[in-house]
């Protein structure tokens, strides 16, 4: 266990250093964050064009939280990055569990997502006249964090798939993200979808967490909010279990097919 935590921590540190080598706070703010904020604004403006504040509220809250999903699915690219830098074989041959290394590295993106989503939550609602129940609204970033965790578990699961099928990375990344945007109640209420689709939707990350946040902002009962959040965490636990199995399988597949290359 202590070994695992150390691996997690060092994975986080290294990814943070690599992230820092890639982003300065300026490029993160103006290149990455602003793009995410603009996307959320875009949807809120659609709400405004539709002419009702209710629509604006719905779309803005949904897209604020969805910002989290973008970062959480970026972990998919970590799997490919490891191949590109020629370190995958070294990682597989090291005694540490591969999944732990990935989880540690992904934490940087989870952090980036929570930060972006929280900044959006603090800055955009006033611009669009979305009323929030302050000071209690201060709890929303915590809920966003819960959503982030389960999205990140889901992203790690997609990453496991990409580890085995590297050429599918962009499709997997976009599909992974679009599935969340489409079905989990970001822009369209989940009740829009037929019953049988809803069954599948309830095991997607963000569905329950977003429902919890919407309910909380609307002053819904605490029991509903807490229940939905618990479900969100349960969904995350499910995805991480699948991810763990998937990582094992994909590494075995790579060892069998001979796709884990030495760097030469």
């Amino acid at each position: 266990m202590r070994d695992q935590l150390r691996v997690l921590r060092h994975g986080l540190v290294v990814q943070w250093l690599l992230f820092r080598g890639f982003h300065t706070w300026k490029t993160w703010t103006f290149g990455w964050l602003s793009r995410l904020l603009i996307q959320a604004c875009f949807y809120a403006l659609i709400g405004r064009m539709l002419g009702s504040q209710e629509q604006v509220d719905y779309l803005l809250i949904g897209n604020l939280v969805a910002i989290m999903a973008i970062d959480a699915t970026v972990v998919v690219l970590l799997a490919v990055g490891e191949r590109q830098s020629g370190t995958l074989a070294l990682m597989v041959a090291a005694p540490a569990t591969h999944l732990t290394v990935y989880l540690g590295k992904g934490l940087v993106h989870l952090g980036s997502g929570v930060a972006a989503s929280t900044i959006a939550f603090l800055t955009l609602p006033p611009l669009f006249g979305v009323a929030l129940p302050w000071p209690w609204a201060g709890l929303v970033p915590l809920m966003i964090f819960v959503v982030g965790v389960s999205c990140y578990c889901y992203g790690t699961c997609v990453a496991a798939f990409v580890l085995g099928f590297p050429s599918a990375r962009w499709v997997a990344l976009n599909l992974g993200y679009l599935v969340l945007m489409t079905f989990t109640g970001v822009n369209v209420p989940t009740s829009f979808w037929p019953e049988w689709v809803r069954g599948a939707i309830s095991v997607l990350p963000m569905t329950h967490g977003l429902a919890a946040i919407r309910s909380f902002v609307d002053g819904g009962p605490v029991s509903v909010v807490a229940g939905e959040l618990a479900l969100e965490l349960a969904v995350g636990a499910g995805w991480i279990t699948v991810a763990a199995l998937g990582f094992g399988r994909m590494v075995t597949r790579g060892r069998r097919d001979g796709t884990i290359e030495f760097a030469s």
Binding site: V13, V14, G21, F22, S85, T87
Partner: peptide, 18 residues
Amino acid sequence: GLYWKLTARQTLRYWAAL
């Protein structure tokens, strides 16, 4: 097989954990 944006020390500390 190396991360170019790390230093030698950081590289070795990372692999030590692994």
